[in-house]
């Protein structure tokens, strides 16, 4: 079976700094894949390369047989890659429901004229969007807060909302950038269950960046370790975490 995401020799330089070099990764459908590495190793840069925020100097990114190398962020989103951010980026002054509805933007259409004149197309599609958004919110237990402004949600729920919004775009691949950052052990446990749930319920392929080793070893099937922009180790979670190179570079001893 061909991999859902196939990245070969991905690289980018910022001025004289080679931030990511020769990065390869291959993720199967419905796999939960972890990307780890010390601070500044280039993990978020990889995400930015995969989502078109930066254009790679070298390499190829193939998503489900489609070449998305160097495409624009919008086109990559349409091709089926959704992401969350390390520092939460919600639409703070929109309601929780509207945040998800923005995620549904490209899946439900009506024209500007239909919207302004409130034609039947507007009513029908808005109803669909509301129902779909509420379904998604229910999965994350946020349906009771649909009316709240996104900025008024507590931290943990903001993280969930960001994932719900990403899923609204109906992606093939979900990128989570440090989903457990700033969470206490209880919340992290809850998050782990939720990520598993998302994978099963939506048949989602997930690539996540994480520092929390409990989370990584708990749910990731495969790992890639980045160090100074290069792949240090790659493979099954247990073998990678026991790799002496990884232990010296990252876990320390």
């Amino acid at each position: 079976m061909a991999a859902l995401l196939d990245v070969k020799n991905l690289g980018i330089s910022f001025g004289g700094l080679r931030a990511v070099n020769g990065f390869d990764i291959s993720i199967e459908k419905e796999q939960l894949y972890g990307l780890i590495g010390p601070n500044g190793a280039g993990k978020t840069t990889v995400f930015n390369l995969l989502t078109g925020v930066y254009k790679p100097d070298t390499g190829k990114v193939i998503l489900d047989g489609q070449d998305i190398t160097g495409k624009k962020t919008i086109d990559i989103s349409k091709a089926g890659v959704a992401r969350t951010f390390q520092n939460i980026r919600l639409f703070t002054k929109l309601s929780v429901l509207d945040n998800v509805k923005v995620g549904l933007h490209n899946k439900h259409h009506y024209s500007t004229i239909e919207g302004i004149l409130r034609l039947p197309g507007y009513r029908r599609v808005e109803k669909e969007m509301n129902e779909r958004a509420m379904e998604l919110l229910k999965v994350f237990d946020l349906d009771g807060h649909a009316d709240y402004l996104a900025s008024n949600l507590p931290y943990g729920q903001q993280r969930k909302l960001e994932i719900a919004r990403a899923l609204a775009t109906e992606p093939k691949l979900l990128l989570l950038d440090e989903p457990a950052a700033g969470m206490n052990p209880n919340e992290t446990g809850e998050l782990m269950e939720m990520i598993q749930l998302v994978r099963e319920k939506f048949h989602m392929t997930i690539l996540l960046i994480e520092h929390d080793m409990k989370l990584v070893s708990g749910i990731c099937e495969k790992l890639t370790v980045l160090n100074f922009g290069e792949v240090l180790a790659q493979g099954d979670t247990s073998s990678v975490l026991n790799d002496p190179q990884v232990i010296t570079a990252y876990l320390g001893e």
Binding site: F91, H105, T169
Partner: peptide
């Protein structure tokens, strides 16, 4: 509210 996030969901 957030240009980067808007782009990331395909706006």
């Amino acid at each position: 509210d957030n240009r980067i996030a808007a782009e990331s969901v395909g706006i």
